[in-house]
Design a protein around this nucleic acid. Structure first.
Lengths: 216, 216
DNA sequence: TAGATTGTTAATCGATTAACAATC
DNA sequence: TAGATTGTTAATCGATTAACAATC
């Protein structure tokens, strides 16, 4: 009945809301709920109902039924398909310190279609070891191994002083998307996707929001 | 010369760009640069120059000088003041697993005016210990200690099954802002600030971006 | 001075919200 | 049927970008 939606453009803002919908829907499914209306969903998520309905319309394969809403199971797999959680992407991480180890051992990535397959570190006492069953290599072997495994995603968890060097090394090895945890400004050529993750800044913004809310 | 800007409203989008400006400016200052123009800054950050100029106008105490630009040092402290990096906010964390430990030991928070002062955990083999000089208490003592220390910010790093319980406990103890790392939908009353941090989803969105870019 | 850069006002763009007919 | 919910078209809102006079 419905035409193929693949070509419909989704806004960046809507895309960013999808993971939140997914978490909510899975939660409701776990409670045994089978159908959900955009109205209820919007209320629980404190969003506008029209916005939710429009967002769901972009990704949903089956249209929602008046009086019933959307079938939760179908909606979940539609969003997962849309976000690509069903075909695995592999990534490597450079900098196996505390944060690097945390990401390497984090089990949550799997259900998002992600796998961090190996770690790299320059320190001789770290390279050569294993962590949670994942091998840690010397950075000297980065290009060789990443090319061989055809990895396109790199994660930077080194101190900020080394971030640019690591970034250059990654691009040189064919990495096309970089998730950067170092509070550094990376100079990057066209065509490489970057997401800067500044955890301290995120918390600081929350803290500011609170302060402004309390009026001081 | 310039009127007080405190009352001028800043857009959410502009606020979110501030930490990025700060990282860039500190980087340039470390290179020994003293003045920066919004034009150059926009080019390096791949943003629109008018947007950068407008953003800076909101927070900058001194206006920029034609032909020269802005004085970097002044700009840095203006943004830091604006974001509240100069008065410390304290936070506590519940769930001292791998991620909790990482955040507890992360040194980067200090320069953002943040301090995670203690950890809490329900497991008897974890509570009572220390980590990086910070005490880990039993969750039983959460309300008592948080109230006594007058902490308003709570960080949730427990498994998703316990996230709502921890959240309720936090609100009950007077916490007003919650940074949630559990992939759970939290039900929260009015007036509490929440920031959901879904690391796996962040990486998944980057991965999707790459896939769409490569056209498959 | 000439030219780069500023700050501001106006125009555009994109995303959100409102209104409403269609449907089960 | 009556009422809730859907999808869509139009209106509003906010943020980004363009145009330009003012300034060092």
């Amino acid at each position: 009945m419905k035409e193929c939606k693949e070509t419909i453009q989704i806004s960046k803002a809507a895309l960013a809301r999808m993971p939140g919908y997914l978490i909510y829907l899975k939660n409701r499914r776990a409670e045994g709920v089978n159908f959900i209306s955009s109205t209820v969903m919007a209320e629980d998520l404190k969003q506008n109902p029209v916005q939710v309905r429009k967002d769901l319309a972009v990704v949903s394969h089956c249209p929602g039924k008046p009086k019933l809403g959307f079938e939760i199971g179908g909606l979940i797999s539609d969003i997962e398909d849309f976000l690509g959680y069903n075909n695995t992407s592999e990534a490597v991480i450079v900098g196996v310190g505390q944060l690097g180890k945390t990401l390497l051992s984090y089990g949550g990535f799997e259900s998002y279609g992600l796998s961090i397959v190996a770690g790299f570190d320059a320190r001789p006492d770290v390279a050569g070891k294993e962590w949670c069953g994942k091998k840690i290599f010397s950075v000297d072997r980065f290009s060789e191994l990443v090319r061989r495994m055809n990895i396109l995603i790199g994660i930077i968890t080194v101190p900020k002083e080394q971030a640019q060097i690591v970034c250059d090394m990654m691009i040189d090895a064919g990495i096309r998307a970089i998730w950067n945890f170092a509070p550094a400004h990376l100079v990057i050529p066209e065509g490489i996707a970057v997401k800067n993750e500044d955890l301290a800044a995120s918390l600081a913004l929350l803290s500011k929001q609170l302060r402004d809310q309390l009026g001081k």
